[in-house]
């Protein structure tokens, strides 16, 4: 398709330079690059200096608890052709560590501070991995999937009295009919309590 010409050119240049990169043109103005974790720094440097992707829009982290991985996503923007690159990589979830990119972008510092706090990722080279949003946080980093928010709120706060007489509809119906829901059904039962 002709309208994705620029995107395809960018994808091609990346593929040529980084052979192991998995490059896809997702849609207009979006190019997704999946890289080995050790290639992120060279890639960001190349994209910034050689391809004019000078704007770091954000760094995001996704916790793939089941795969024991964190996914890091670096979003870069080129002001001339307005194309965005999402550079993705996986890092190990146990003792997560990654390279800091504060020397490339000022704003990376803030993103890395937050990820240190919320996911527990240590960004080596960031001199300011200090407390950011949370205060005196002792528990596991709260944005990790295994952090139980409901339990946290139950342990931290109390409910105002007056709502104890709430009932569950499904339980009320089974009580009337005598139905016994087997163990495998419990995951599928819709509860309103």
């Amino acid at each position: 398709m002709e309208e994705l010409k620029i995107e395809k050119e960018i994808a091609e240049e990346i593929s040529k330079t980084f052979h192991s990169a998995e490059v896809t043109v997702k849609r207009e103005k979006r190019v997704v690059v999946k890289l080995r974790d050790d290639l992120i720094t060279p890639f960001l440097s190349y994209a910034k200096n050689n391809m004019n992707f000078i704007h770091l829009a954000h760094i995001s982290c996704v916790d793939w608890l089941e795969d024991n991985k964190f996914e890091l996503i670096y979003s870069l923007l080129n002001y001339d052709n307005k194309v965005m690159i999402l550079a993705k990589t996986y890092i190990d979830r146990e003792n997560p560590e990654f390279v800091s990119h504060t020397n490339y972008w000022d704003q990376a510092e803030t993103y890395e501070r937050e990820m240190r706090e919320m996911y527990g990722i240590n960004f080596k080279g960031n001199k300011r991995l200090t407390e950011f949003i949370l205060e005196d946080w002792q528990g596991i980093p709260p944005m990790r999937r295994d952090f139980d928010t409901v339990k946290f709120s139950q342990d931290t706060f109390y409910n105002r009295p007056g709502r104890e007489n709430a009932q569950d509809v499904r339980t009320t119906v089974t009580k009337k009919s005598g139905e016994e829901i087997p163990e495998i059904g419990k995951d599928y039962t819709v509860r309103n309590l």
Binding site: I54, L56, A57, Y79, W105, D106
Partner: peptide, 8 residues
């Protein structure tokens, strides 16, 4: 102005 883009 020179740095604005880079600073995000």
């Amino acid at each position: 102005k020179e740095k604005a883009l880079e600073w995000g």
